[in-house]
Nucleic acid binder design. Structure first.
Ligand SMILES: [Mn+2]
Ligand SMILES: [Mn+2]
Ligand SMILES: [Mn+2]
Ligand SMILES: [Mn+2]
Lengths: 217, 217
DNA sequence: GGCATGATTTCGGTGTGCCGAAATCACAGC
DNA sequence: GCTGTGATTTCGGCACACCGAAATCATGCC
C-alpha cells in the first residue's frame, strides 16, 4: 500500500491537523478529497490494515507514526514542487497547486532532493506553509489566525491558505502577500468583517479571508 | 482514451519505426512493453476504437495521424526530461530512462515547455535521439548503423540506443560518447565483432553494440 | 490442397479505486 | 429509556489495465 491514492489520503489527514489540532472525520476527508463517503470508508479500512492510520468504526481517523512519516514526505514533495514552479518557471502562487498535486507522486526522492537543493532548500512554500526537511523535521512558525487576532495586533503575514485560488488572486491584487505587515484595526459592526491596515491602506476582510491568513504571533 | 497506458503504447509503436521502417507486430509490442500478448491485443483494440492506431485482426499495428501526433508529443516529453536530468541534475546517461518514463506522464505542457526553454530548446537527448519541437516537427540526422557501415567509414557518433543501461556504462568507460569520432577498421574473422578506432585506441565491438551505435553518414 | 506451427485472439478472472443506494449505527433531545 | 437524524458502513456494481489458458487463425511446407 503505497499508491498515489494512499499518498493523497494521508496528506489530506495530515493537512487537516496541521494548523488546528482536531482529528478528521470520514466525511470531512471525503469532501476534502472530492470523493464519496463510501469510497473513503473503504480506503480508510485499507490504510488501517497497512498500518498508516488508526480508526475504530464510526470514529475519526488518525495517522500512525508510519502514516505521519509518509504524509510529511508527501507534504515536502508538494511544497518543494510549488516553490520550484513559482521560483523557476514563472507560475503565480494561485496556479501551482494542481500541477503539484500530480507531480508530487511522480518524482523520485533523488530528483526531488536535487530540485530542493537547487532552490537552496527552502523552508516555506509560496503560501508560507513550512516545507519539511528530507529527514522529516518540520518547523512551524508561531502564528495567529487573523480571525482570532486581537484588535491592535500587528505582525507579518506568515501563511495564507492556498485552498481558494480566486482568493489568492484577490489578495495579491490588494497587496497582501507573504511578509506583508498587517495591523488589526477592529471589527466593523454587524458586517462580520475585520478592518486591517496594510501599509497606508485599509482593507475590510470578510470571515473567509480572516480564516485564511495567519500573522506572526 | 488518453491514459498513461495509451501514451506508452503509441510511444512504443512510434519508437519501433523511428530508425528502421517496419510495422510492429502485437507480440513485439508486448515484449517491448513487458506485457502479455493478450493484454496488448485488447489494448490495441481500444486504441483502434479511439482512432490512434490501425489494425486488422492478425496483422501489424500502425499509427494513425492522431496516434503519431500523440506519440511525437510523448517522445518529446520523454527526451526533454532525460536531457534535463543529465544537464541539470547530475544524472548519468544510463540513469535517466526510468525516471523519464514516469515523469513524461505527469508534466503539463506548460511546465514541459518551460523546462525545454530553460535548456535552450535542445534538439537531441543524451543518447542522440532527436527531440521533436513543440509543434511536432522532427529532424532526424543522416546516420548509418555501425553494423552496416563499410570498412573505412569514419564519422561522429550521432546516436546510441538507450535500451541497455549496462552497455551505456561500458561505452562511456571505453570513451565512446556522443560526437566521438569513430573509424571502422574491419571485421575480426570468425569473432562476429567489428574493429573500430576511437582516437588513438582500437576497440572490438560485438554485434549487440554494432546494432546500437549510429554514425554520421 | 492439407496440415503443423507459432502468432494472435478470446475468454474468464484479478486488483485497485471509485460510485450510489440501502442498511446500520451513535447520539442528542425528549 | 426511546427515537429521530445524520453520519458511517455495507453492498452490488463499474472502469481500467492487466494475466494465463484455451481457442482460433495465417502461413509456409509438403
Ligand atoms: Mn498546494
Ligand atoms: Mn496528489
Ligand atoms: Mn511512460
Ligand atoms: Mn533517450
Amino acid at each position: 500500500m503505497q499508491s498515489t491514492a494512499a499518498e493523497d489520503y494521508v496528506k489530506a489527514i495530515y493537512h487537516h491537523t496541521e494548523w488546528q489540532p482536531e482529528p478528521i472525520t470520514p466525511s470531512q476527508l471525503a469532501s476534502r478529497l472530492g470523493l464519496a463517503n463510501s469510497t473513503v470508508t473503504e480506503m480508510v479500512k485499507k490504510l488501517a490494515a497497512a498500518g498508516l492510520v488508526r480508526h475504530r468504526p464510526y470514529g475519526a481517523v488518525e495517522l500512525t507514526d508510519d502514516g505521519r512519516a509518509l504524509a510529511v514526505r508527501q507534504v515536502r514533495r508538494h511544497r518543494v514542487v510549488e516553490t520550484w514552479l513559482v521560483e523557476r518557471h514563472g507560475y503565480d502562487w494561485d496556479e501551482v497547486h494542481d500541477e503539484a498535486e500530480i507531480l508530487e507522486h511522480a518524482l523520485s526522492d533523488r530528483l526531488l532532493d536535487s530540485i530542493a537543493r537547487s532552490l537552496g532548500d527552502p523552508e516555506r512554500d509560496p503560501h508560507g506553509d513550512p516545507i519539511p526537511a528530507a529527514d522529516g523535521t518540520v518547523r512551524r512558525p508561531d502564528a495567529v489566525l487573523l480571525a482570532d487576532a486581537e484588535v491592535g495586533h500587528a505582525g507579518a503575514v506568515v501563511r495564507i491558505s492556498d485552498a481558494d485560488p480566486a482568493m489568492l488572486r484577490f489578495l495579491a491584487g490588494a497587496g497582501v502577500a507573504l511578509d506583508a505587515r498587517l495591523t488589526v484595526l477592529g471589527q466593523k459592526p454587524y458586517s462580520g468583517s475585520i478592518q486591517v491596515r496594510s501599509g497606508s491602506t485599509t482593507i475590510d476582510v470578510g470571515p473567509d479571508v480572516a480564516q485564511a491568513i495567519w500573522l506572526a504571533a
